[in-house]
């Protein structure tokens, strides 16, 4: 059952990204371009997304187990460390260059455009590089 809900949630997430316009890099860059002709649409995507997720997460914070009995795995970290800040700043630079982030990239991967294939390959390489650096750090 949990496999089915995982698939359904991913599918719904992808359809939401496509409907919202998040999967169109030109639109994302229009949102990030405050000094040009600014398209505020994506602010409303966040409003809708956070709004709809507020109650489920309020429930999740008060429970040890999910509705299907899975352990509730919410992040426990609290500290605002340098990794969080520098990592997020670096992510934003990449987002600003191409107008695409991980979710939308996967949601349009099967359209087969070479641009998204190249972006996802580079993104996976970046993640593997992170894993390799982390292994060196901890060993």
């Amino acid at each position: 059952m949990r496999k089915l809900t995982a698939f359904a949630a991913g599918l719904l997430f992808g359809l939401g990204l496509l409907l919202a316009g998040m999967a169109n890099p030109a639109k994302v860059l229009g949102f990030l371009d405050l000094a040009g002709a600014w398209d505020p649409s994506l602010a409303l995507v966040m409003v809708g997304g956070i709004g709809a997720a507020l109650l489920p997460f309020a429930w999740a914070r008060r429970h040890e187990r999910s509705l299907l009995g899975a352990p509730m795995q919410l992040p426990r970290k609290r500290e605002l460390d340098r990794r969080l800040i520098v990592g997020s700043l670096v992510f934003g630079v990449g987002w600003g260059i191409a107008g695409i982030c991980p979710g939308p990239a996967l949601a349009i991967l099967l359209t087969g455009q070479w641009q998204v294939l190249l972006f996802v390959l580079a993104m996976v390489a970046g993640m593997l590089l992170y894993s390799a650096l982390e292994r060196r750090r901890t060993h």
């Binding site: 059952m1 949990r2 809900t5 995982a6 359904a8 949630a9 991913g10 599918l11 719904l12 997430f13 359809l15 939401g16 990204l17 496509l18 409907l19 919202a20 316009g21 998040m22 639109k27 229009g30 002709a37 398209d39 505020p40 649409s41 994506l42 409303l44 995507v45 966040m46 409003v47 809708g48 997304g49 956070i50 709004g51 709809a52 997720a53 109650l55 489920p56 997460f57 429930w59 999740a60 187990r65 999910s66 509705l67 299907l68 899975a70 352990p71 509730m72 795995q73 919410l74």
Partner: peptide
């Protein structure tokens, strides 16, 4: 290029999807 309704509706779907994933899968 401003598309408030599809942006809001798409956002709601994203939020419902994220909400379902935590409610059912705890993730």
């Amino acid at each position: 290029n401003f598309t408030p309704w599809s942006a809001l509706a798409g956002g709601l779907l994203i939020g419902i999807a994220a909400g379902s994933f935590v409610l059912f899968n705890g993730r």
